[in-house]
Simulated assay, not measured.
Amino acid sequence: MKASYLARVGIIAAAYAAASLASLLFLGSLAWGPIQFRVSEALCVLALITPAAIPGLTLGCVIANVINMVITGSGALGLLDVVFGSLATCIGALISWKLREKPLLALAGPVLTNALIVPAYLPILLMGIGYYTIPFTSIQLDGAWFAMYVFGLIATGAGEAVIMYVLGRPLFYVLDRSPFGAHAVEVSS
């Protein structure tokens, strides 16, 4: 592997992990709970520009989820997020890379993978640490996995769609037209 490729992977991983942890700090349970409104997910647009984003985003997600596991004290249950949350990010980035010629469609990759995968394990993780209440309500869904999954599918999908299309799309267009955009990456690779 070229050093420049590895450097891109490392920079993307660091940026994603730092942005995820900033989301935890400023948005709390909106970034890590049932809604999954992580501003760092906007960086998934990098997968439309460089294949280095696929391992970079995945590694950044692993790092952020391991740190979150330590901060929240979720213990071994936090490994669900480390494994499956990072898998969702990896698959979403791979879909985005494969569909990069159609940016609006490519942005749906992370939306779909996160909406389908994260709600499947998140209720188990949250119930394991003793709670699950739909945000902004007093509705308890303990023991109702299917209801929690449906809520998570909608909430995570909506949160991810807002991040990808409201923040990620403009970020992609700015980066793509910069000296470091898709054309520059292809030429230097």
Rank of each mutant, 00 (worst) to 15 (best):
V111F: 04
L80D: 07
Y132R: 15
Y149S: 15
P135G: 10
Y149R: 15
S96T: 10
P119R: 07
T113E: 11
T89N: 02
A144Q: 13
M148W: 01
L80T: 14
W97P: 12
L107H: 05
E160R: 13
S138R: 09
G152I: 03
G109L: 11
F136E: 05
G78F: 01
L112E: 02
L77H: 04
F146R: 04
L104H: 03
P110D: 06
I95T: 06
G128D: 06
A158H: 04
F146L: 14
L141G: 09
G152H: 09
I134M: 11
I95K: 01
G92L: 08
L80F: 12
P135F: 03
L94M: 12
Q140R: 11
G130I: 03
L107S: 05
A106D: 02
Y132C: 15
I129E: 01
W97S: 09
G78D: 05
L79H: 02
V118P: 11
I91A: 15
Y131P: 13
L104K: 13
P103L: 02
Y149Q: 15
R100E: 02
L141A: 10
G85R: 04
G85Y: 00
L80C: 08
G130N: 07
V111D: 03
V150L: 13
V82Y: 00
M148A: 13
P119F: 05
F146T: 11
G128L: 09
L87C: 10
S86L: 07
Y131S: 15
L105F: 00
A120H: 05
L112H: 02
G143S: 14
P123W: 03
A115I: 13
I91E: 03
A144L: 15
V83N: 05
G85F: 01
T89A: 07
K98S: 07
I134A: 11
T113H: 12
F151L: 06
Y132F: 14
A115F: 13
P110G: 10
V83L: 07
P119I: 12
A108Y: 02
Y132G: 15
V150I: 12
M127W: 09
T137C: 07
F84C: 09
V82F: 00
K98E: 03
V118D: 04
L125V: 08
G157P: 12
A144G: 03
L104A: 06
I139G: 06
I91N: 12
L99V: 05
N114D: 15
L126T: 06
G130V: 03
A76H: 01
L94S: 13
I129F: 02
M148L: 14
L87Q: 03
A158V: 15
F151I: 08
M127F: 05
R100N: 01
F151N: 09
A93N: 10
